[in-house]
Amino acid sequence: MAITIEEVKEKSLKDKIIDYIQEDVPDHLYTWPYTLGAIPLVLFAILLITGILMTFYYIPYPDRAYESVRDITYSIYLGWFIRGMHKLAVNLMILSLLLHMVRVFITRAYKDNGEVKWLLGAGIFFTSLAFGFTGYSLVYDNVSYWGMVVVTNMAGELPVVGKTLLLLLRGGEEVSEFTLIRLYDLHTKLLPLLIIVLITGHILAVRLLGFAKLGTDLKSVPTEGMHKFFPEHAMEVGLISICLLIFIVDIVMLFPPTLGTAANPLEVASNVSPPWYFSAVYKWITIVPRDAGLFAVMLFIILFFAYPYIDRFLSKRGTDMWRVNITISAAAVIVFTILTLWEIVRV
């Protein structure tokens, strides 16, 4: 095998960096389903900035939490704007992560070294849900207070780990000031640390292991063009960021964030409901027997993480996984939508 001059001569660090940022990326990243990975990243940056800004005013103590959120929303200059961006960005982030997962699932992009990407990505998704729950609880209005009670109780009913998890989350058997400070710590310190590690790992995995091949089986991969990561791809991500920013700013202007009545530990809110991304699970555990429902949720999470390996196992035995995945994802999207709407649109 011929050795090129580049391989003989060791590259300087500068050359390596230039090579890295100018690496070729496939042209299919220009199509919209393949931008769904960059969108949550941009949203995460928005969440990080607006979140840090709000920590300068938020007071994580039960007597003051609601007041401080009220001040952010109604008194502090541009507070409503920062909180609105934060609130909208997290909803969009979870939505785009869901869509991103559907895309990855349908195209079976978790194959051929993609397992690591899938595992890290699944980690990012569940960490985002944890962010959603903890952030929702910090608002401390009556709906979010009782949402916190219900969700921590749900965690407490999980088999084996439940009781310990409940004590760890609540810092006691009942919801108290320790619960709020723990959720605050999780939301502003531990979870950000975790998600930054996971996101870095996910992006590194995508860059080092390569982008997913287009097409459902390798024979039908179309020969496609490439473009440079910098500037072409970076420009595309920039364009997405600007579009997202314009969209978020507009929506926040039109629909500024609101706040319910203060948390009242003695009076359940009449409309206790978790954020929309938990609605499906919340509905699910009410329509099936509780233990079976929670067990099913845990099983689903385990199967979800293990899916690339299940796919490999089945396709080796001749199952047409392309059809299986299309069926599963269509069913999952339909069930999720029905359960969510059923919970949100109360009759």
Partner: peptide, 18 residues
């Protein structure tokens, strides 16, 4: 799931809103 029940005097029942 740990919500608070309230008393419905007309139906003589405890109702949990959650």
């Amino acid at each position: 799931l740990g919500c608070l029940v309230s008393w419905d005097a007309a139906r003589e029942q405890f109702i949990c809103p959650c």
